[in-house]
């Protein structure tokens, strides 16, 4: 009863937040709209990562592989249709990019997900680098020369606002997907894998398929985000999308916010992006040190993330009462 009510409250709150976020560009300066884009992009990436990493406990270190595949396959497909209207190009690119991510992820899923813990993480790091290197060094993929993306914006609308709204749609869809997964049988299956994979399997949870499905969903979302991101930049090379810092950030968002929660990656992404781009944006040669320090402090002081910290504080209060 209370559970239902609290869920309803959450839904209402989320919808209100969504509407507020959609209208925000009306009052925000362009810089903050741009920061908003990055927050939404990062939050969606963090959520996509969390579907596998947060729910099932399989920490991928190679999420950038799918960002890159989505961006480059989508971009190459769009280049084939250079004469078509940009909106159509984008849709084709989206279809091609996400299809490529789905196929590649499905092919990779069964062998790679046999590995556990740190070995899975390392294997995904390797996968990301293999794709990055091939993308960069095989000429038809144009990774080294770079790929130009058509302007898909709507005439009269500031491109910053347009991409902000596009990222918002993507982030909202990702949140919805993650929420639906979380409360479904599939989601509980993933959680059981995180808690004890062997027992879960013994009790009849189809762990293999669940892991693979989560992997593919996570990859496709990353691919779609990668394509939108590439459009928002207008020109990318391999180094713009296959980035090790993205691999790492996807994890840090969850760690900072709260591992396995839905709100965690969103909070984490918002804090980290604002911190690195707004607060530390001015410093010529200090931001790397500051980011490093933040990571160290985070691991030592808030090992279960801000959500965990908040829960602990709230819990303590209740006990006192």
């Amino acid at each position: 009863m209370t559970r239902q009510r609290s869920e309803r409250t959450w839904i209402c709150l989320s919808l209100a937040a969504l509407v507020a976020a959609a209208l925000a560009p009306l009052v925000l300066a362009p810089f903050y709209v741009r920061v908003g884009q990055l927050v939404l992009y990062s939050a969606a990436l963090g959520l996509a990562w969390a579907i596998l990493g947060g729910f099932a406990g399989y920490w991928s270190f190679g999420q950038s592989a799918f960002i890159g595949i989505g961006a480059f396959v989508g971009g190459l497909a769009e280049a084939e249709l250079a004469t078509a209207p940009p909106a159509l190009q984008f849709l084709v690119g989206l279809a091609a990019g996400s299809a490529a991510c789905a196929v590649i992820a499905a092919l990779l899923a069964y062998p790679v997900l046999r590995l556990r813990g740190i070995y899975f993480a390392i294997a995904m790091l390797g996968v990301a680098h293999v794709f990055a290197e091939l993308n960069n060094n095989i000429d038809i993929f144009q990774g080294s020369l770079g790929l130009t993306f058509p302007n898909i914006g709507i005439a009269g609308l500031d491109p910053h606002v347009f991409y902000y709204e596009l990222f918002l749609v993507a982030a909202a869809a990702t949140l919805l997907a993650a929420w639906l997964i979380r409360r479904s049988r599939f989601g509980y299956g993933l959680l059981s894998i995180r808690e004890d994979e062997d027992t879960a399997r013994m009790l009849g949870v189809p762990t293999e398929h669940y892991k693979a499905a989560a992997f593919v969903v996570s990859a496709v979302i990353a691919g779609v985000l990668g394509l939108i991101y590439a459009h928002s930049l207008g020109y990318i090379t391999t180094g713009s999308v296959y980035r090790d810092d993205t691999n790492l950030n996807a994890i840090v968002y969850s760690l900072l916010g709260g591992m396995g929660t839905l709100i965690g990656p969103i909070i984490g992404a918002a804090i980290l992006v604002v911190l690195t781009h707004v607060v530390l944006g001015d410093f010529l040669d200090f931001h790397m040190f500051a980011t490093g320090l933040l990571l160290v402090l985070l691991v030592l002081l808030a090992p279960s993330g801000l959500v965990g910290l908040a829960r602990k504080l709230v819990g303590r209060k209740k006990v006192r009462r």
Binding site: I251, M288, T291
Partner: peptide, 16 residues
């Protein structure tokens, strides 16, 4: 925290 989190710590130290 955990072993995996210790990895993040070492990354932070590397950056610094």
């Amino acid at each position: 925290s955990s072993l995996l989190a210790s990895m993040l710590l070492t990354f932070g130290v590397a950056l610094m």
